[in-house]
């Protein structure tokens, strides 16, 4: 049963890898493969956000903080000319982000809802201000991260990591932990009654999510070769991270993948097609409003519901409604 469930994902992944290999070696690292790498990085980060925002239901406007911590953990030692392997640093950055998330969960996650939302946004502002104001952290100059990693190797690694993370999140949320997440989101009182510790469950989601965001941030620095407070902590990074799950389908793994691809594609498209300031924001804002008004759960569950409706499987539909 379980194997049957996983098989489509594995086949889809293999096909995607094959297609990607053809594309990568055909286009020798041009605009398109850069674009694919950014999409993959944001998918990793969005899966991290989705664990907390989608499965547990605590919206965070500041996952850029974990992204930025991962990025600067890679950037600072290289900026100070310490001789440490960059890939090791990327994973260390993820660990530091997870540690920071664990610390920050104590004040923020004990109360449901708003303190977390406002607090995470505030964290983003605080980190940006501190990094801008302190010359020892390279202030607004930023760090140029030169490394001798093969770009093709990085491409491949980021892509494989994206698939591993997606499958891993799917596996994790199908297990006991995922059920706990959903229980805390939907009926916290009942969850508490059967012995689920709400605070610990939320913290677990936040820490795993922060690990993924930190990893994505660190790899982003290795790939782009430059980091400054704006690309690390700005609220536009948080927006890119959290918009994907909302548009694709909140609380679904594949929806996040689709949604993030759409969001990054729109951002890139708006940069060239709507050259005036604000065009990008306008496109994303309108898309968000339309998605929320038409199909509140996002594009992917909405389309699935529509397909079920058209094929006349009313039984499955009611079953899904109960599950959701």
């Amino acid at each position: 049963m379980k194997n049957n469930k996983l098989r489509p994902y594995i086949i889809a992944g293999l096909i995607a890898i094959a297609a990607y290999m053809v594309l990568l070696f055909g286009s020798d690292g041009g605009y398109l493969s850069n674009f694919i790498v950014y999409v993959c990085l944001f998918i990793i980060a969005s899966q991290g956000w989705n664990l907390l925002g989608g499965y547990v239901g605590e919206i965070s406007f500041g996952h850029a903080v974990f992204w930025g911590i991962g990025a600067y953990t890679v950037g600072l030692p290289i900026g100070y000319d310490l001789n440490i392997s960059p890939l090791l640093l990327a994973f260390a950055g993820a660990a530091v982000a997870a540690l920071f998330a664990w610390i920050i969960s104590y004040p923020l996650l004990r109360v449901r809802g708003f303190p977390f939302l406002v607090g995470t946004y505030g964290l983003g502002v605080v980190f940006e201000k501190v990094f801008v104001a302190s010359p020892k952290l390279f202030a607004t100059k930023g760090v140029f991260v030169a490394n001798d990693l093969n770009r093709f190797f990085l491409h491949g690694m980021i892509f494989v990591l994206m698939i591993v993370v997606t499958v891993g999140v799917k596996w994790l949320t199908d297990k006991d932990l995922g059920l706990r997440f959903k229980a805390v989101r939907d009926v916290p009182e009942a969850a508490e009654m059967v012995g689920v510790n709400i605070y610990h469950t939320k913290t677990a989601a936040l820490v795993i999510g922060a690990f993924l965001c930190g990893l994505a941030g660190g790899l982003y620095v290795l790939y782009s070769g430059f980091i400054n407070p704006t690309t690390a902590f700005d609220s536009s990074v948080s927006i890119s991270i959290l918009m994907g799950p909302y548009i694709g389908g909140i609380g679904t793994v594949l929806g996040t993948v689709f949604g993030t691809s759409i969001v990054i594609a729109i951002q890139e498209w708006a940069r060239s097609a709507l050259p005036f300031t604000g065009g990008q924001h306008m496109a994303l804002g309108l898309l968000l409003i339309i998605i929320m008004m038409v199909s509140r759960e996002g594009l992917f569950p909405g389309l699935r519901k529509l397909a079920l409706k058209l094929s006349g499987k009313t039984k499955d539909k009611t079953k899904e409604k109960k599950a959701a």
Binding site: F276, T277, G278, G279, Q280, H281, M282, L284, G285, L286, L288, I289
Partner: peptide
Amino acid sequence: GICIMALEYM
């Protein structure tokens, strides 16, 4: 809110 902000930018 984002749309209003974009409008102001324009």
